[in-house]
Design a protein around this nucleic acid. Structure first.
Length: 967
RNA sequence: AGUACAAUAGCUCAAUGGCAGAGCAAACGACUGAUAAUCGUUCGACCAGGGUCCGAUUCCCGUUGUACUACCA
């Protein structure tokens, strides 16, 4: 008996079924580094149109988490797909290195009493360490980039660039100094950043204060009543009585209703809106006393009167808060007049519906103050004491002042109530003492300040884009209009943020940051008139020695005898300014990159952050956005849609996934998830990803294994000589590639993954390869039918490996090595596969689409027989198809090849007149099974010396080989 | 609390003001020439609720989640 298995062309490859990615990927990374792959790609892409994705610098602190991973992977997929699409797409990764979080790390480790230059030195070292750690992980993800020349915002050149950028913005007239309330710790004598504040319970004195109206006539008019001839008061509640000396207004909500209520203590303005708070304010009082019924609902006014122990003697009038706008009040213990203003931040869950406004002591107050042009006079010094010249409380600490204020109010009969209140209050994280809000001198970039220059000089700036005046807000607005957004809602988000944002406070009182390298006049605080010249000189010094050059600089060297009138500004820049100006310090100065970038890609939080800081600085400097398009991805959450936290224990570390499953699994996950919303990850999800990876990998393996003996130089069969099904699959794959490259272009990677997977399992595994196996294995090795199949498999593999490579970079490279046997080459050095020309494939596609449907109909019937135990393998079956019309013609046209498409041993197609007679009938074959090709054929044994094989095999083995036209 | 985005089968994704479509998983079966693979068949879903409409998975309200902002007199 002959072993016919040896006569078959069975699959053969060294490409392993299991990826063993965790082990192989690091080796491949070494190989990429060894052959300088990134630099090779740059050389190969030279002269092509550029596509610049500018890397938003992650903050150089802590190990990378899954959020970093998704961001870098998406960027990498884009860079690679753009390269394949024929662009020169460089990638220069960056890091954000200055700022408070790093300074904190150093303080935590070394204490906070180090000299400033030592802190900066330690910070610099720390940041460098962090960068190296993160860089190693990013590289491990398979992210290809110029890691040797990555940019750090603490590079001396960039530090100098930041100072120059500040100079440019200053020159345009956007920079100004102003007072703004900040968190202030009395014990630190310093401003605190948000991160240095913690909330704790504190007991404060809550007092209700009556502000006398100055003009009853105006009040009467507002209320629509004829006359008011008793003293009237607007009543406010405050838990910080010490802020009353800085009071500049009383605010009402424009849409709330307000009553003028008669009491024995005078006429009081109180809101008649429903009280919506829980009884947190003086609850004991409320519980004990019934709410006055003649006011009807439990309104704020009703609650207040109960608290004040006053009887409602009648409501004289009612009006909307907006009607009270700009009425004049008398300050309760100062001679000043103050206005009533309107503000949306007034609420009904506590107080009177009227709020005392001290712009120097509260952010909301400050905002309202800006709107109404109220002065930001701050009466409190660095140590929390009122300045000596302040009446009543001069020289007192704010806490002492509280008592004095209360006494004064009581004396003036303007105190309606006072009570102790426990509430959450900000405290200094170091001293654990209550902080205060206090306005200090800060530097701002003005959103609405007119641009100071003639715009015509600026090549990029298009004045007609501006909506109205040339200022930063309008410039930013126009720039947003000119930007493309993925997904589209990003535009509305950025737009509304630009519209509503306040001036950008760019100064910080910290050590680890780029200095605002100004000389300011000791008396007037004005910057030196020659600032422009100085800044350039300083920038040159910083270029040599880093920011330390400024801090160690001798003022006399610069200013000579003027030095005594000026001081060096010790403020540093908000770290967002550093990253926000990378379009100026990195894009413009790099030979590889260009301004503006084609794309910025970050998490959705960066609408508030980097997207905006970059937009503002670029609009200030250039008049337009530093990017043509913005792409946003969501945050990573767990399988239940909840955010990851250590305490919940649902954190998935990218390092762990890479070390167990491999980076390609993480990449496939990242690509398969729709990033426009939140991205879910869990062990189950990863398990599914691994399974889907295996499917793709196995398909590639099968393709490779059937190309083992195929030499593309000598064995290629021209398209027109290929069998019908091969020509169909070629056309199909071309269309498939076109679709996928479009999906790549639109950044729809999850669609790419889905389609790739479908293609591998349905189009290839479930159809084409299934049909092809017989021909590949049993046909004459070098005959046209087999070479035709291999030619198309070659095209498919080359197309597929490229389509995979932006996502499954490691696996694609591994395939590439097996496919080309060239270890110097890389799939990433190529562009999308160029298929041979194939004119007019419409009919071809149509025919086979229908054939596949009919094939699937037969398979259902086969399964029925199989379930009944009539047949096992589909080759053990004989099929009779009764049909009519086009289907008959189509099936019949395949002739003998039809059974090979359906993968059964025998098919007869019968034309019927009546559609009711349509049907598919399956019976077991009565013939012997050919030992070689496993078909059940009547002609098995037709050759005497080979009694166990069929005629087809005989011809393939000893004759001219079988003839096939269709499949 | 406000704003934005999201919600479809166990998982990842589609489509649609008029029968909700895939792949994976699962179940069953076949094969043993892709074999820790492969092929086939089957099973399975519109966020609870309310509204607009002849009709809602789709539009509106609400719920839940996420992000940003505000946490306050």
């Amino acid at each position: 008996m002959t072993d016919y298995k040896k006569t078959l062309n069975l699959p053969d490859t060294l490409f392993p079924m299991r990826g063993n990615l965790a082990k192989l990927e690091p080796e491949m990374l070494k190989a990429w580094e060894r052959k300088r792959l990134y630099q090779k790609i740059r050389a190969a892409c030279k002269g092509r149109p550029k596509f610049v994705l500018h890397d938003g610098p992650p903050y150089a602190n802590g190990d990378i988490h899954i959020g970093h991973a998704i961001n870098k992977i998406l960027k990498d997929i884009i860079i690679k797909s753009k390269t394949l699409a024929g662009f020169d797409a460089p990638y220069i990764p960056g890091w954000d290195c200055h700022g408070l979080p790093i300074e904190h790390q150093i303080e935590k480790k070394y204490g906070k009493n180090l000299p400033a230059d030592k802190i900066r030195e330690l910070c610099r070292d720390f940041a460098r360490e962090q960068v190296e750690k993160q860089k190693a992980d990013f590289i491990r993800l398979g992210v290809l980039g110029d890691w040797d020349k990555s940019y750090l915002t603490m590079d001396y050149g960039i530090e100098a660039g930041i100072i120059r950028a500040l100079g440019k913005i200053h020159k345009k007239g956007y920079l100004y100094q102003g007072q703004k309330p900040v968190n202030w710790c009395i014990d630190c004598s310093s401003a605190l950043a948000e991160a240095e504040v913690e909330y704790e319970d504190k007991t404060s004195l809550a007092i209700d204060v009556a502000f006398p109206f100055k003009h009853n006539v105006a009040l009467a008019k507002a209320l629509g009543v004829s006359v008011i001839n008793e003293p009237a008061f607007a009543v406010i509640l405050t838990t910080t009585p010490w802020t009353l000396p800085a009071n500049q207004a009383v605010s009402v909500h424009p849409d709330y209703d307000y009553h003028l209520v008669r009491t024995v203590k005078g006429l009081l303005i109180l809101s008649s809106e429903l009280y919506t708070g829980v009884n947190s304010i003086r609850s004991s009082t409320i519980d004990e006393k019934p709410v006055q019924s003649d006011l009807g609902n439990p309104s704020l006014a009703a609650y207040c009167l109960v608290n004040y122990d006053l009887e409602n003697l009648g409501v004289l009038g009612t009006c909307k808060g907006s009607a009270l706008n700009l009425l004049e009040l008398k300050h309760p213990f100062d001679e000043r007049s103050i206005p009533i203003v309107c503000s949306e931040h007034v609420t009904t869950d506590a107080g009177t519906g009227l709020v005392h406004i001290a712009p120097a002591h509260g952010v909301d107050d400050y905002i309202v103050g800006q709107k109404y042009n109220l002065p930001v006079d701050n009466p409190v010094d660095d140590n929390g004491k009122f300045y000596d010249h302040i009446p009543l409380v001069g020289g007192l600490s704010v806490w002492k002042a509280t008592e004095v204020v209360v006494q004064e109010l009581r004396k003036n009969s303007l105190l309606l109530n006072s009570d102790k209140l426990q509430h959450s209050y900000p405290h200094c994280w170091r001293h654990k003492t209550p902080i205060i809000f206090r306005a200090t001198r800060q530097w701002f970039i003005g959103m609405d300040k007119p641009t100071y220059n003639d715009a015509s000089k600026n090549a990029n700036f298009v004045p007609e884009l501006l909506d109205g005046q040339d200022n930063l807000r309008n410039r930013a607005n126009s720039a947003v209009t000119a930007t493309e957004f993925f997904p589209a809602w990003g535009r509305a988000r950025l737009e509304s943020m630009i519209k509503n944002r306040f001036d950008w406070c760019v100064s910080r009182q910290r050590n680890w940051g780029v200095p605002m390298a100004f000389f300011v006049h000791k008396e007037t605080h004005e910057v030196h008139p020659k600032t422009e010249v100085f800044l350039e000189k300083i920038a040159q010094m910083v270029e040599q020695k880093g920011i330390e050059a400024w801090f160690s600089l001798d003022i006399a060297e610069f200013l000579g005898k003027e030095a005594k009138d000026y001081k060096k500004l010790t403020d540093t820049l908000d770290v967002w300014f550093d990253s926000g100006t990378t379009h100026d310090t990195v894009l413009k100065s790099s030979e590889q990159l260009k301004y503006p970038a084609d794309l910025y890609l970050e998490g959705s939080d960066q609408h508030r952050g980097w997207f905006q800081s970059s937009l503002l600085t670029s609009c200030a400097i250039n008049g337009d956005a530093p990017y043509k398009a913005l792409l946003t991805h969501g945050f990573v959450v767990d399988g239940n849609g909840h955010k990851m936290s250590k305490s919940k224990g649902n954190v998935i570390a990218p390092q762990k996934v890479m070390d167990t499953s491999g980076a390609d699994i993480l990449r496939l996950w990242a690509a398969s998830t729709d990033y426009s919303g939140e991205l879910t990850i869990s062990d189950e999800i990863l398990k599914r990803v691994v399974e889907s990876y295996r499917r793709i990998r196995n398909t590639l393996r099968f393709l490779l294994s059937n190309l083992a003996d195929f030499d593309s130089d000598s064995d290629f069969v021209d398209e027109e000589q290929c069998l019908d099904i091969d020509r169909y699959m070629l056309a199909f794959t071309r269309a498939f590639q076109d679709e996928l490259t479009q999906n790549y272009k639109r950044y729809e990677f999850h669609v790419v993954v889905y389609k790739l997977h479908y293609f591998c399992s349905e189009d290839l595994g479930g159809f084409y390869l299934d049909v092809l196996k017989d021909r590949l294995y049993t046909a004459t090795t070098t005959g046209i039918p087999r070479r035709s199949a291999q030619s198309v498999l070659f095209h498919i593999t080359h197309s597929l490996v490229r389509l995979l490579s932006p996502i499954l970079s490691f696996t694609a490279e591994e395939v590439w090595e097996h496919l080309t046997c060239n270890t110097d080459d890389s799939v990433l050095l190529h562009t999308w596969y160029k298929f041979p020309p194939q004119p007019d494939v419409r009919l071809l596609l149509q025919r086979w689409t229908r054939l596949r449907e009919l094939r699937s109909d037969v398979q259902k019937k086969l399964e029925e027989s199989r379930a009944q135990g009539k047949i096992g393998s589909s080759l053990s079956a004989v099929v009779k198809i009764c049909t009519s019309g086009e289907d008959f013609a189509l099936l019949n046209s395949l002739g003998e090849d039809l059974r090979l498409v359906i993968v059964v041993s025998e098919v007869t197609v019968i034309q019927v007149e009546n559609p009711l007679e349509n049907g598919i009938f399956v019976t077991p074959s009565v013939h012997a099974k050919c030992e070689r090709c496993w078909h059940y054929r009547k002609d098995v044994g037709c050759k005497e010396d080979h009694p166990t094989i069929c005629a087809r095999c005989v011809s393939n083995l000893f004759g001219p080989g079988e003839v096939r036209r269709h499949a």
